[in-house]
């Protein structure tokens, strides 16, 4: 399956953009479960997922897939800091989603999110806007 067919099957009207030797598709309303099923169907490998701050309460999330050596990047935005989990479709997403939850408190709906790199008692979202470190005595905000 070529990347144009992937775009059409996702129902996306934006064109692929080629930058830094990778292909990028910006879709704020991306159906991430449909995208994940499609990529698994094409034997693509989930490389990772990158989250970053988009605005105060939402996050920009990029799903990076390797399709026969080509790096495809699907860019979307969280809705109320939430996206559907794709772990049941692609098990490689398990630790990735847990790590993003640790860093940004993004919720991946449809699964439990135990801490991955943080201690059990640490609150998620240490990279997010509201986190304030108060030192060892004060604990987390």
């Amino acid at each position: 399956m070529d990347i144009e067919e992937i775009r059409e099957r996702l129902g996306n009207m934006e064109a692929w953009v080629n930058k830094s030797e990778a292909w990028w598709l910006e879709t704020p309303s991306l159906d991430v479960e449909k995208m994940a099923r499609l990529m698994v169907e094409t034997s693509a490998r989930l490389v990772t997922v990158t989250a970053s701050r988009a605005r105060e309460d939402e996050f920009r999330v990029i799903y990076h897939w390797d399709l026969q050596g080509r790096l495809l990047n699907f860019v979307t935005i969280t809705n109320q800091a939430t996206l559907p989990s794709i772990t049941s479709i692609c098990p490689a997403a398990d630790w990735i989603e847990r790590e993003i939850h640790d860093y940004f408190a993004v919720n991946f709906a449809g699964r439990e999110l135990p801490t991955l790199v943080l201690s059990d008692q640490d609150p998620p979202g240490i990279f997010s806007w509201n986190f304030q470190w108060k030192g060892k005595e004060g604990g987390h905000a």
């Binding site: 490998r45 490389v47 692609c90 098990p91 490689a92």
Partner: peptide, 8 residues
Amino acid sequence: KEQALAWG
């Protein structure tokens, strides 16, 4: 091979 691909 299938497991390796699915788990990345």
